[in-house]
Amino acid sequence: MLTPAHTQSAVRAALMEDAPWGDVTARLVISDTATMTAAIRAREPGVFAGGAVLTEAFRQVDPRITVSALRADATAFAPGDVLAEVTGPARGILTAERVALNFVQRMSGIATLTSQYVAEVERVGAHARIADTRKTVPGLRVFDKYSVTAGGGSNHRFGLSDAIMVKDNHLAVLGGDITAALIELKRRAGHTTSIIVEVDRLEQIDAVRAARPTGILLDNFSISDLRAAVALIDGAMTVEASGGVTLGTVAEIASTGVDVISVGALTHSVRALDLGLDAR
């Protein structure tokens, strides 16, 4: 998912934003012959993500900078742990510092939060997958979604082009016989395209179930209605729960028997972890 091309282009854009005419402070304060070694250190616990992006930020600023002792993505860390060591020309390290940290702080924040949701589901012995949504930073979706997988979560559709999701506004425009409309949609889409239909009340399920789409998304259902819906669908399609999911509610939602729980909060309002670069 996260290719070198994605990483290179995103880092290039970030460096252009941060230092379009170079780093005036480093150029005037630091000798061009000065070298340094620094550690990327954790100031709180978490799950690491973004090692390739961190490395690319330093490489683009100055290829002479080396990154070593790099923590593997998807691994947990504790406060004080060294996540990477950086050695080379001091000007380049100081210029790349903020961009490198911005990426790994956000990516590790997403991975960490995702791992907490996954742990809550595992705690109650449920089988539900934790999935992301399209509520990502524009232009950085591949990084956000990669970070979810580093935290043990699953990716929902990447964008509007790779799966059909018929939401409430689509149904409102369709009107009429929903079952017939969905059956016609299946015919036109072909057998290889996933079709997920969103509903917001139990009374809509029979019409959707009759068309046998790939999955059904139960939006903002109560716990009792989720249980009733799972029983009514009875394995006929994948059942997804969404809407207002929190760390305090995800375990109970998972215990209803749904297959997927999509959580917009994994990416739309995640807190960046506190990581820092300390000179040695």
Rank of each mutant, 00 (worst) to 15 (best):
D225G: 14
T95N: 05
H156A: 05
D32P: 11
V53H: 07
I183K: 15
S154A: 05
M36H: 02
L101G: 10
A57C: 10
V260E: 00
V24S: 00
V142I: 10
D225T: 12
Y117G: 02
T37N: 06
V173H: 07
D132E: 04
H127S: 06
G46A: 05
R188Q: 12
A26P: 00
A180P: 03
A150Y: 02
T246I: 04
R27M: 05
D162M: 08
A10Y: 07
G159S: 14
L94T: 07
S31Q: 06
R41I: 13
E120S: 15
F158H: 11
L70Q: 06
F158N: 04
I261F: 00
K145G: 11
T112Q: 00
L113R: 11
I110W: 02
A76N: 13
V245K: 08
G243S: 12
H191I: 15
S68Q: 14
V270F: 03
M107L: 12
V104F: 04
F48C: 01
T55E: 14
L182Y: 14
I164F: 08
E120H: 11
A272M: 05
S269R: 15
D168E: 15
V61L: 05
S108N: 00
V270C: 04
T35P: 03
P89S: 01
A69S: 08
A76Q: 14
D200W: 15
A131Y: 07
I110R: 03
H127I: 01
D144Q: 13
A236T: 14
T192W: 15
V118I: 00
V61I: 09
R43A: 04
E120P: 10
L28N: 15
A228L: 07
Q105S: 09
T3K: 11
T3F: 10
R227F: 01
V137G: 07
Q204G: 09
V137C: 03
G264P: 06
S262L: 11
A49H: 07
I30A: 04
G248I: 09
D81E: 06
V199Y: 08
V86Q: 02
G151H: 04
M165P: 14
A231F: 03
K186T: 03
A38G: 13
L277D: 01
G51T: 12
A265T: 07
R91P: 13
V166F: 12
V61Y: 02
G139Y: 06
R59W: 03
P79Q: 06
V142Y: 03
L217A: 13
S224D: 09
P138F: 13
A111F: 05
T192M: 15
H6Q: 11
A272Y: 11
R41C: 02
T267D: 04
S255V: 04
L226R: 15
A228E: 15
L83E: 09
R41E: 10
V82T: 14
I261S: 01
M1D: 08
S154P: 00
A78S: 15
